[in-house]
Every structure is written in structure tokens, then in C-alpha cells.
Design a binder for these strands. Sequence first.
DNA 1: ACCTGAACACCGTTCAAGT
DNA 2: ACCTGAACACCGTTCAAGT
Lengths: 221, 221
Amino acid sequence: MASGARSALTREAVLEAAAALVRRHGPDALTMRALAADLGTAVTSIYWHVGGREALLDALVERTVAELGEIRPSGRTPEQRVVGVARELRRQLRDHPHLVALVHERGLTERMFLPAQRVLVREAHAAGLRGARAAEFVRAVQFQVVGHVLVERNRERAPVQQPGERELWGSQAAGDDPALARALARPVDTERLFVTAVRALVRSLLARPSRLPTRAPDSVA
Amino acid sequence: MASGARSALTREAVLEAAAALVRRHGPDALTMRALAADLGTAVTSIYWHVGGREALLDALVERTVAELGEIRPSGRTPEQRVVGVARELRRQLRDHPHLVALVHERGLTERMFLPAQRVLVREAHAAGLRGARAAEFVRAVQFQVVGHVLVERNRERAPVQQPGERELWGSQAAGDDPALARALARPVDTERLFVTAVRALVRSLLARPSRLPTRAPDSVA
DNA sequence: ACCTGAACACCGTTCAAGT
DNA sequence: ACCTGAACACCGTTCAAGT
């Protein structure tokens, strides 16, 4: 399964093959031996070019994070633009499910979010937030988005839950609110829930200060 | 290191030893061989009592989740009580960091939150939310709390980040807002951030409907 | 400078054999 | 019914040896 196995082995080639392996079969499939087989080399050659498995994963994460696209805010109010940024970021993370797994496994969740921080800072300023307040806003949105994606990913991977919401809320259980029981027994519409939650958070945090007139940010890089 | 190795091996004894191992040295230390050594038995005996590693982890998660304490809401308004519930839940999860890792790894994040759902439903009702609205509220809080804890856990485990916030916001970088740059260069006060975010979310979601007079829930089990 | 195979110290799991 | 050791098919990593 090696593609072009005749040229000399390169750090780039190793990372490329590793990325392909993860993309197709998930992070667990990335073993040094399988990777070497794909490359048509000895296992130990990988160690010379990129170091051990830890270093390989580090490089892989860095590489894939760099590939994430730009985030361009659009919308009339800061609230609309921030919700848009959050949705775009969520979409990007969902498009790279294995990357999210890798990043989380390696404790680099924060790294994943750095590209979006600048954009959010600009929106915070546009909404009249400054200093520590603006920083708090940026981080609240960051934790919200990344946390939601992690929980989502986890749910999708989860098998049938034993005493799940289904059974728990299936019968009466909810007292005098059958509509609630039905809603909790249904699977979650995560997209909708995400937008609702982000909008609620943003609305509260942006509403607190002096309420300056809302204008577009200086420039959209 | 076996404690009472003379009596017959029990499913309970195996789970107890496994829990102790995870508590002391983390989930990675839970290998079938290490566990057998702790118990003073052959590795294969474990298979007879609890099945393979997957089944062992399942049982362990179930066991530890059941050990989580009750959650008793307190406070005058639904907002105060929900924030209190969220803080209590976060504290419980933080007290069992390895459990959170196990649960997340096995895709059972949802399971972790079931005990708190009933409490939140009661508060939603007390705040005047009903039906699908109440369900959405419960799930928004659920995703928020669990997501936040996951991100937090991840950050604590993370080593020194290479192009971290520190370097990124260390110099000018933030244009004309040095206070913001300083704030983002500092480590996050996660407790504070958590409360701020949950309160913002809850306030928005509870403010939407008809605003019925706020009364305490019927009974606090 | 680059690549190799052999070897080491680990894994989880199966299985036939004991009592 | 319960427990055992041997064996299998995997891991990541090291290291001396090649060119």
C-alpha cells in the first residue's frame, strides 16, 4: 500500500502517510509498524526522521491544525458574528473528527483554538468589551465551543447506553410534563442545541457593559 | 501489594483492586497483568470473573458513577440553584479526574450526567419552563458543564504549549488593549470562568419565557 | 547521513489442562 | 465452578551493525 516507495524517505513523507492512516482508520490504527509497512521501510527508519510515537503525534497535530481554514466573521451585529464564528469553528472541528481525538488525547485542546482567538478579540472590541472583560468573553466562548464539540464527539462514539435517557424518560417519570419527557427521550439535535447555547452565552456576556452602539470591526483580514 | 490475598477471588474484589489502581496511578496503569499481580492471582482468573478489559472498564465506570454523591440545590432563585448544581457537579467530577478520563474514553459522558438531570428538570419547572423548552435548557446546561470539565482536564494535563497564549499575547499583538493582552497571557481562572459562563447561559435561557414568579421546587429529595 | 534486523520488555486474549 | 501456565499475536523502543 506504499505510494511511491522508491524515493528516499522524508520527514514529510512519514507525516503524510501517518495523516492518511489516521484519516482512514482512526488514531488507534497509527502504529509504528503499520506506518512502516505503508511506507515500505523498516520501523526504525521512522525513529531517525521524526522520533518516537509521541513526537510523531505532536508533528501530526501541528500539521493538521495549520490546515484548518480561515475563519471569516459575517453578520450585522457582534452577536451574529460571534455565533457565526462559533458555528464555523465547530464545523471545522467536526470535519476532522480524528484530529479532535488526537488533540484531546495529547492535551492540546487549547492549541486548537488559537486561530480563532484573534477573531473573537476583534468582535469583543466591536461590542464595547475591553481588558479583562474582553478576555473573559473570549475564553468563555472558547471553552463553550471546544467543550461542546468534545461532548458531541463522545456521544457519537458512545454505544447504546444502558440506563439511557431513552429508558429513563420513556415512561411517566417527568411528573406532569409529558412533552418534556418526550423531548428528553428523543435524540439531541446537537446543531440546534449548540446555536442556542452559544447565542444565550454571547447575549448575556455582551449585554453586561455599557452597551455602546454596535459597529462592524475595523477590518476583516 | 495484595490486600487479603487468601480468600477466594470475587468479582467485587477485582473491581475494588482495579478502582484502587486507577485512583492511584491513572487509567493507563490498569493492565490485566498489573491487576493480577495486585490480586495475587493469575491473569486469566480475571477473565473468568469480570471478562476482558472492556467489560472491566464498563463495570468500573458504572461502579464509580454510582458512588457520586447526591446533588442538593440551594439558593433563593432558580438561577442561583442551577448555578449551584452546576458547581457541585463540576466539583464531583473534578474529585474523580481519572473517572472522567475513563468515562470520556469509553464514550459514556452522557451516563455521567444522568443523576443531575432530574434536579435540573425540577429547576426548569420552577422557573416556568416546560416541555421542549425545559428539555433544551437541561441539555444546554449538561453540555456546558461536562464540556467545561473536559476542556479543563485537558488543559491541566497539557504540557507547555509551544506557540501558547503566553507567547502569542505576550508582546503588543492585541493592538490598543494592553489590559486584554495581559489577561490572555495569564493562566485561566477556571472556577471563575465556569461560574461566569454557566450564569450567563442560565440567565439567558431562563429569561426567555413568560417570567412567572419564582418559587422553590416542590421538594428537595 | 541514513537504513536495517534482532532483541527487549511490554500488552490483551485464547485455550487446553488442571482441581 | 474456579484457577492455572503456556502460547499467540500484537505493541513501542533501543542498539549494534551495516552502507
